[in-house]
């Protein structure tokens, strides 16, 4: 296991160490990294690890936030030191990566986004052919983030990967279904985005009056259904 090591940085141009890796992030957080690029196995490992930390309730840990391929662990330095906490984390890095229970959500989408024709053409598909390919096979919520209730779902097969738009739209409406980088994302609030808008849904993954305010969690299965 790598100990937190980024205090000895200057002059140290080594390559990435073995993963997973525990690194210091500022003076009140550690980051546990499972990958350096978007990777299905790393995403699964991060989600499993975050769930294990939540279940264990380590003293001094203030917040646990899974991301695409890493887990943020915020701590209170008055309650726990870096050495002790990294030891506690390292202990929980061993063991198998079995997923706990994940829920399945069916999300109805009207595939009427302004960019769907361009995306289909980029992939050499008709619009119907693209929608069929997009919905084939289930997807998983890889991470939440960016904006309240925003979810990243993946992964599409490599053949469906398209880059982001060169121009950012200053605002797309809540319920926009977005597509780029081998993933589909769902906006729960009005946001700016450089992703392609391929459709819209009535589903809103954010309601601040409800606890918890979101229904979709990282690790959940998503099935997209077409509404006309």
């Amino acid at each position: 296991m790598e100990q937190p090591s980024n205090q000895s940085l200057p002059g140290d141009d080594r390559h990435w160490p073995t993963l997973p890796q525990i690194v210091l992030l500022g003076d009140s957080a550690l980051l546990v990294r499972f990958g350096q690029s978007l990777d299905d196995a790393a995403n699964r490992a991060a989600l499993v690890f975050a769930a294990r930390l939540e279940a264990d309730g380590i003293v001094g840990v203030v917040e646990i936030v899974p991301s695409l391929v890493s887990v943020l662990v915020r701590y209170d330095p008055a309650q726990v030191g870096v050495a002790r906490l990294s030891g506690e984390l390292a202990l929980r890095l061993s063991g198998d990566g079995a997923f706990g229970e994940s829920r399945t959500h069916r999300i109805a989408v009207r595939f009427d986004g302004p960019d769907i024709g361009e995306v289909a053409a980029l992939l050499g598909l008709s619009i119907d052919g693209f929608v069929e390919a997009h919905n084939r096979g289930g997807m998983r919520v890889l991470a939440t983030g960016f904006a309240p209730g925003f979810v990243y779902c993946g992964f599409h097969e490599q053949a469906l990967a398209v880059p982001r738009r060169t121009l950012v739209r200053p605002q797309v409406s809540a319920g926009s279904v977005l597509f780029a980088a081998g993933q589909t994302a769902i906006a729960a609030t009005d946001i700016p985005t450089g992703w392609h808008v391929i459709g819209h849904t009535q589903f809103r993954n954010f309601d601040p009056t409800v606890n918890p305010p979101t229904q979709l969690r990282a690790g959940d299965q998503i099935i997209f259904e077409v509404v006309l």
């Binding site: 350096q36 991301s67 695409l68």
Partner: peptide, 29 residues
């Protein structure tokens, strides 16, 4: 790089070399 969580006080360097210090209402990643 791959998106990772952000904390207040992070000093990020944009593609054109501009440094930005992220503050309390930073984006999460």
């Amino acid at each position: 790089l791959i998106s990772d969580p952000i904390l207040p006080g992070d000093i990020q360097i944009l593609g054109d070399g501009t440094p930005i210090v992220l503050m309390r209402d930073h984006q999460p990643t």
